[in-house]
Design a protein around this nucleic acid. Structure first.
Lengths: 142, 142
DNA sequence: CTGATAACGTAAGGTTGCCTGTCGAAATAA
DNA sequence: TTATTTCGACAGGCAACCTTACGTTATCAG
């Protein structure tokens, strides 16, 4: 950081914000106006084959209760389904509906397109940035 | 992004989170237990010589009302002071108290130390990361 | 087999950090 | 002067989390 340079934390924080806004704006542009910021915790942790909401909560770093609420909201919106887990009667398997699969795919396409664009334009810098971010996370994770 | 790599947005988002947590933890370790996440909007936008809360709100990207609430909270905590602006009787100038200056300095020291550590350890990668983050922000800022 | 313990989803209620709408007072423009 | 804008503040609301506490089901030690 040189004098008058923005601190790294400010750079990372603002970039994270515009990326989140961009993801949300993309979903809305694609016609999925009901998508809310909190839904990201699901899209980021629910694989196509489905998962338990408790596992998703652990991966997202939020409580089971919070994940449960988001999942119920998305069920109401027709994005997710919950079916009983045949191998464990306490549990339910969360999966995408056909509609939800389209929403998730639109988001993933957007992510992949951005990553490719960054790699094409910035080349080695992009890889360096990935290393730095990973290293910072490692350094500061308690 | 290679297959099975974490998307860039996930990397940036998680790094931003651990950095924010680290800043907060540092303040608490330094004995400033009353510091809350929302206070960051003030520390990031209030220069040592003081400013108007409306200007700070604009820089932080939040509403005047929200900034006003945070500022009042920090006045209550003895971190900030508000004095009437002699040149505009509608306005008040927000400044740090002596105590608040210490809190802000502790945060700034921590930021500077981390930036230096990153530069020392990662060298050119660090500069590359800064370029990439700035570029992403520029690309996605509407 | 039985009893303790743990894990599943859920309900109820609280906290934080923002928001919109509105206001009176003061500054500025027409 | 009058109209408009800008200042901080108040009231109320909302999203996205949290903690505490259930009842149900699974698992494991004895």
């Amino acid at each position: 950081m040189r004098p008058d340079d923005e601190p790294f934390i400010a750079l990372v924080d603002k970039t994270a914000r515009v990326m989140r806004n961009d993801m949300l704006a993309n979903a809305h542009r694609a016609g999925y106006a009901e998508i809310a910021p909190a839904h990201n915790a699901v899209f980021a942790t629910l694989p196509p084959e489905g998962a338990r909401s408790a596992d998703m909560a652990a991966r997202a770093g939020i409580t089971r209760q919070s994940m449960g609420e988001v999942v119920r909201d998305m069920v109401r919106l027709g994005i997710l389904e919950m079916v009983p887990d045949p191998s464990d009667r306490r549990a339910k398997i969360v999966t995408y509906t056909d509609y939800g699969t389209k929403v998730a795919q639109a988001g993933l396409d957007h992510i992949v397109a951005l990553d490719r664009k960054l790699r094409d334009e910035l080349g080695d810098d992009y890889d360096a940035a990935r290393r730095v971010l990973a290293r910072v996370r490692e350094m500061l994770t308690p």
